[in-house]
Design a protein around this nucleic acid. Structure first.
Lengths: 257, 257
DNA sequence: CATATTTTCTTGTATTTTGAGAATTTTAGT
DNA sequence: ACTAAAATTCTCAAAATACAAGAAAATATG
């Protein structure tokens, strides 16, 4: 264990399910002497990446809140897309969850969301949550724009039920890519139906998607054209604004140099 | 530069004002050879603490969004206090921003906020933002519960205008502590008036405050009793719930061992 | 106040990091 | 597609530091 890994391994122990650890527990889990863990944890506490809680327990520290805020204020995707989510939600014909998601390693992560006030279900799509790569429209709208070796690398670790399953997946991917949007039902959460379109910006390295998720019960076939029209127009808007931001950044850097 | 410091120094360059850096810029800023920075940045990118953006620039990565979410779901203060902020806001007689803040090193950080829909001003109080230690009711409600050497250490780096200024500060602190709440006007943002009460839990190591901030124009003296009543009752509620969580954690750990 | 637990400290040794420059890859302009 | 510039990775020996084991100190607990 060397370099950043030694810090990252410890930080990654902290999860939704288990948000506090003692040094001894960490030491057990990572099979590393406790004197070493004490030293590393002390460093992380000093940098506010961890903080000590009651009874020798440690939990994630406020540095993450601070940096998260900076991302919200400056990340071009979040900054641009966030304000449009509410508008999109209001134009949808039924109650919805609306999500901006992007590629994160070989998972998909929601980076902004807006739920209409009376949406009944709890979706898995919440800001910061990692989602599976091969299920759900949100994810598929992202990967359908990736091709060749990049796609291969990305899917390398995914396990399909059988070859037939795999073929179907790739066929759907191709079809959706032709159509320009995705629709899936119940792949991530039972009782929910999702629609998604891709958002891309090659220069800024953005591989993302915009999606609206509904309760299957509320959904009627006649809603579909409106949903697609909304998603498509907002995704174009967001892409255009992101380009704008890119130009601004360029200008800024040119001026300052 | 050794240990976690070398990573932290780089991460801390990324700010609201300047959210993307090239390796060469970092190398200049930290007076460290670029080959070294390249290696460190590569590690941080691998761990998703940074990500590469357009034109050789790097920005903060999605790891912060992920960990921030875990904190939101598990931090006892955020988890407990968040839902009460909206209720508090609705019971206030005028439009308000309501804030949960806590000590973060020798600054104060807002960890949760709720603004009523028609509040006009933009407060400095946003989730994740670091606030000055000696200005504003929000901060004072926190430090007024800290005593002796701890207080000294905390204020060591603060610079007062003159001795008179310093005396006034400590006198106010003492007074507020007696009353159990703070009120300041225009110390952080012009045109805003803030009220705050402390929230503490020694066992969980929580030193925090709950505050309501209003536009001075909206505020009338007869609102004051209601504001204090609300703040006081909600702070007690939050403290009680946090205690509850503490017991739950205790039980959980006892069961699993 | 005594005991158990948590945390820091000490040490020689093993491992990792470092930085300068060369080598390679990527990018952007023609 | 070619070329020049820029960005990134690689190499290696010297320097720095992280490591583990246990002792010592500090802190919590009953």
């Amino acid at each position: 264990m060397s370099g950043f890994t030694r810090y990252n391994k410890i930080l990654n122990l902290f999860s939704e399910q288990r948000s506090s650890w003692t040094v001894l527990e960490i030491s057990d889990e990572l099979k590393t002497p406790s004197s070493t863990i004490y030293r590393i944890v002390r460093e992380l506490v000093l940098a506010e990446f961890l903080e000590s809680a009651a009874g020798a327990y440690f939990r994630l520290g406020p540095a993450f809140i601070k940096f998260n805020r900076i991302i919200n204020l400056s990340d071009p995707l979040v900054r641009t897309g966030q304000p449009f989510l509410k508008k999109l939600a209001n134009e949808n014909p039924i109650e919805s969850v609306n999500v901006l998601a992007r590629l994160y390693g070989n998972k998909v992560m929601c980076v902004a969301d807006y739920k209409t006030p009376f949406f009944k279900n709890n979706t898995s799509y919440q800001k910061g949550k990692l989602m599976p790569l091969i299920y759900g429209a949100t994810s598929r709208a992202i990967i359908m724009k990736i091709v060749g070796k990049n796609l291969e690398d990305l899917l390398k670790q995914e396990i399909f039920y059988d070859d037939n399953d795999k073929d179907t997946f790739f066929k759907n991917l191709k079809n959706d890519n032709k159509k320009g949007y995705c629709k899936t039902e119940g792949q991530v959460d039972k009782g929910l139906i999702g629609f998604a379109v891709p958002i891309n910006n090659k220069k800024l390295g953005i591989e993302a998607s915009l999606s609206s998720i509904f309760n299957s019960i509320d959904f009627l076939p006649e809603h579909e054209p409106i949903i697609y029209a909304n998603l498509t127009s907002y995704s174009l808007l967001i892409e255009r604004y992101i380009n704008q931001i890119f130009d601004d950044i360029q200008n800024y850097h040119q001026k300052s140099s």
